[in-house]
Design a protein around this nucleic acid. Structure first.
Length: 431
RNA sequence: GUGGUCGUAGCUCAGUUGGUUAGAGCGCCAGGUUGUGGCCCUGGAGGUCGGGGGUUCAAUCCCCCUCGAUCACCCCA
């Protein structure tokens, strides 16, 4: 009988953490540490949390992200039930936009700053830093064209990394221009590459038909050489987009964010226009992108809005963030430990242990005790392993006399405490 | 979907040019200390050496198949 295993590309987050292949799966405490940092930073940005379903209509994702993208064409976990097509969300921007439109959040006035944390799903072949179920957090600023919102999106992502103690990353930015810029540029790219097509790899040759922009981020050495002579996207964008882009760069510079302009930074989701950016870390191996995002002014109309709703946002991978934290030695986080562990000498008075634990818990303390009838030594070891602050030692006589031993595990000191005063004494020293 | 690498205890890994009961460290359990943890010492549990087939007197080791893991391409977080 084979044991069941988690599906490839998914993993369990355990209390203690473990290694899986070359990946270190961090303990839950690290995950919470990250999630709390995200929430702190988001609050500073005035962002409010939004939670959307894991399941979305397939059509929303297909239209939002784009039929020809890899995500939609080959990486969706999608299924049909009755007359409805469902998909496990591969990202959260389109769902957030859907929710924004569905609930008419524009009616609440102003610009909405919405953030999320949660799982996403893509049917890719797993590898280091890439999973089938992975976790993202992100910010969407919906309802403004202001270049400050683009810059704010970038600083917000960076602030999460800074908050967690990361320092080593690079920001790459580019502008894709407006709706009309891309077709013009695509044509220019085609004009450049078609005569050279015999020098291109098979994948890139196919892309000339399907999505020529994707040739720009090839890793192939020879193609990179060819790219040096290729037309530059920035030369094809409209004046307004150019001004907008300059303005984004100025704002970033004003607040001391350094970045590199990458004329070949396109992204694999169709909804981007104008600003795009990626934040990457050198410590991550092949999957080096920590976060990515950009402006998506066209998305709202793609998913059925009559009005164009301008928006920008970023999405960041939590697994990759944790990998970077591990590499930077910033992933050591204290996990919760009990205030006290009750040791029963010779396993006497199980009922008393149970009810005492309950009443101490009722007073807000975290209490553990042995459930296996183990020796006192083993109970002490267990208390030590769990990092209990105190051990309550109770034997037959202690309980009848109403006075137990309270041992402070940090320095080994021990005192007699009457049972009625236990919660007060343990609680008083809570730091 | 395509390539490379690797499968020995819960974890990290030794090992056998094919030869009796397959090892270590960590972890776990117990004892050393009959009411006291961390350190130390002793002992113990735990493995069909991924699975199937073949070669051989004999396979964990050699061959074939298969399954799984992993890294990379592609793409993205």
């Amino acid at each position: 009988m084979n044991q069941f295993k988690s599906i490839p590309g998914t993993f369990d987050v355990l209390p203690r953490g473990y290694t899986s292949g070359s990946d270190v799966i961090a303990p839950v405490s690290v995950w919470r540490h990250v999630e709390e940092a995200v929430r702190r930073v988001m609050v500073r940005y005035g962002a409010e949390e939004i939670r959307t379903p894991i399941l979305e209509p397939t059509e929303l994702i297909a239209r939002g992200i784009g039929q020809s993208t890899d995500i939609v064409s080959k990486e969706m976990f999608a299924f049909e039930r009755g007359s409805t097509n469902y998909v496990l969300r591969p990202e959260v921007t389109a769902p957030v936009m859907r929710a924004f439109l569905q609930h008419n959040l524009a009616q609440q006035g102003g610009t909405q700053r919405l953030f999320y944390i949660g799982p996403c799903f893509r049917a890719e072949r797993p590898q280091k830093g890439r999973y089938r179920q992975f976790h993202q957090f992100g910010l969407e600023i919906i309802g403004s064209e202001d270049a400050r919102s683009d810059a704010e999106t970038i600083t917000c992502a960076l602030d999460v990394y800074l908050e967690l103690g990361l320092r080593e990353f690079t920001v790459r930015i580019n502008s894709l221009g407006d709706r009309d810029s891309r077709p013009k540029y695509k044509q220019a790219l085609l004009d450049y590459f078609l005569p050279l097509s015999d020098q291109l790899s098979e994948v890139s040759r196919n892309r000339l038909d399907t999505n020529p922009l994707r040739i720009l981020d090839t890793k192939n050495e020879r193609e990179r050489e060819l790219l040096k002579g290729a037309p530059i996207l920035l030369d094809f964008i409209d004046d307004e987009s150019r001004q907008h882009y300059d303005s984004v760069k100025e704002h970033l510079t004003e607040v001391g964010v350094s970045f590199v302009e990458d004329p070949f930074l396109v992204r694999g989701l169709d909804y981007y226009s104008r600003t795009t950016f990626e934040i990457e870390s050198a410590v991550l191996g092949a999957q080096s992108a920590l976060a990515g995002g950009g402006r998506y002014d066209m998305l709202s109309s793609e998913v059925g809005s009559k009005k164009i709703v301008p928006a920008v946002g970023f999405a960041a991978g939590i697994e990759r963030l944790i990998m970077a934290l591990n590499a930077a030695g910033k992933a050591d986080v204290d996990s919760d430990c009990p205030d006290a562990f009750i040791v029963s000498v010779d396993n006497v008075a199980p009922g008393w242990i149970f009810s005492t634990a309950k009443s101490l818990r009722d007073s807000g303390l975290s209490i553990c005790y042995d459930l296996q009838g183990r020796s006192m030594k083993a109970q002490m070891r267990e208390a030590n392993r769990q990092n209990a602050r105190y051990v309550v030692i109770a034997g037959e006589e202690d309980i009848t006399s109403g006075v137990v031993q309270l041992k402070d595990m940090s320095d080994g000191s021990q005192e007699e405490v009457s049972i009625e005063l236990l919660s007060k004494t343990i609680g008083a020293s809570q730091s």
